[in-house]
Amino acid sequence: MGSPPFFFEWASRLLPWLFPISFLILMIGLVWGIGFAPSDYKQGEVYRIIFVHVPSAILGQSIYLMMAIFGSICLIWRAKLAGMFLRSAAPLGASFTLIALISGAVWGKPTWGTWWVWDARLTSTLILFFLYVGIIGLYSSIDNKQRGDRAASLISVVGVIIVPIIKKSVDWWQTLHQPSTFSLTSSPTMTADMYLPLLICVIGFYFIFVSLLCNSLRAEILTRERNTGWVRKYLNNKVSE
């Protein structure tokens, strides 16, 4: 699994199935949440932003956690695929964090009366976004791929401290942001007809992330290994098709 040719082959077979399944789950969650879930008694209809905001925020943090794990693997074992994972996952993590920030700002305007406050949750999420941008910038500025992988791994491992800070920011500081929507230790605070579509959206977002990651990793593998025999063989087969 750790070898690029094996992963490339595996991802190529999986993707034609993974994308439609991801979109189906996502469509069910979003249509249910935005079209049919009841309105919130306090916030009215604008709360429906939750069906995009919460899954994006969860993914933004989860991807960074995954990057820290793969960063450690890259630093300790120098696994090539781990470095490629970092390179492919960073733009996705930045994208989901950006969606969380934008959707949060758009949600904040009608509910808090402002697009932005320098609140602990918002500020720590902005720092997470900058960490992603920093990793993407590192890859762009370092020509040597292995050195880029090691530098990005180091930032991923050191920067992972931001994830528990984001998670606990609503408990540790007085914030305008509401407490966590999902908790492993307590039952949900919203009714099932709001919670279930949200849960489906979270699952759909994870699926779409895996699909996009496989797609992105294929591009990264082809770019890095384009002079190897197996990539030449693959590309020649594509030409003859």
Binding site: E45, R48, S95, I99, S103, V106, W107, P110, L212
Partner: peptide
């Protein structure tokens, strides 16, 4: 959406563009 649709649909549009 009682005048709040612009916020919800804008967020959905941003999400779709980014994906």
């Amino acid at each position: 959406m009682d005048g709040q649709g612009k916020y919800v649909w804008f967020v959905l549009l941003v999400f779709l563009i980014v994906i």
